[in-house]
């Protein structure tokens, strides 16, 4: 088992934090994990992305070039990473901010209105967790319980009170793709 994931969006959407949470959750399950951020000279409001690997074997290159899943939260990220996913891989598109369909017909593409779902829950900043919930439902790469365990470790005690709303976001994200996954 090896999941190679690219998570991309613009600065402030929480793609780095989401990647760290996913990585930590993999570690909780005693899998081999790595998290590699982009740290290039990006403009404010520019793209941010990270590479996450979760594997039953030791992680080789931490750079994800042949992704099994790409999670894109804005349009420049779709343009940039759509071609990075291997045939048969997963592409999760945040339709709240992306108005086009995928050009790939060899992928499992999931369209998720993450911002709308997050706003309904009362906080647009948890759109990343909606996408993470969808990812876990699709791949079952980790269990959602591991995410709960990792949450406080990644975000600290001061954010522990936000766990309930983040749980809701994970559940809503899973719900959004459930019919597609089980189809």
């Amino acid at each position: 088992m090896e999941e190679r994931i690219i998570i991309a969006g613009f600065g402030g959407q929480g793609v780095m934090a989401m990647g760290q949470l996913l990585t930590y959750s993999g570690m909780v399950e005693e899998k081999n994990v790595s998290w590699l951020p982009s740290y290039g000279p990006e403009m404010r409001g520019g793209t941010a992305n990270c590479n996450v690997t979760i594997s039953s074997d030791p992680v080789g290159s931490p750079v994800v070039v042949e992704a099994t899943t790409a999670i894109v939260l804005n349009k420049p990220s779709l343009d940039k990473f759509e071609t990075s996913v291997v045939t048969g891989g997963n592409l999760l598109i945040n339709t709240s901010l992306i108005d086009r369909k995928s050009n790939r017909d060899d992928l499992n593409v999931y369209y998720i209105p993450a911002n709308e779902i997050a706003i309904e829950l009362g906080n647009v900043r948890i759109a990343n967790m909606v996408m993470l919930g969808a990812y876990i439902e699709i791949t079952k790469a980790i269990s959602v319980d591991s995410v709960y365990k990792a949450f406080e470790k990644v975000f600290g005690e001061s954010k522990a009170h936000l766990l309930p709303i983040n749980k809701q976001a994970l559940e809503k994200g899973a719900e959004a793709v459930k019919s597609l996954v089980n189809a």
Binding site: M27, V33, S34, W35, L36, P37, Y39, V59, P62, V63
Partner: peptide, 10 residues
């Protein structure tokens, strides 16, 4: 290098 400095692992 910058990669090992920036990446996270257990």
């Amino acid at each position: 290098d910058g990669m090992i400095g920036q990446m996270m692992e257990p």
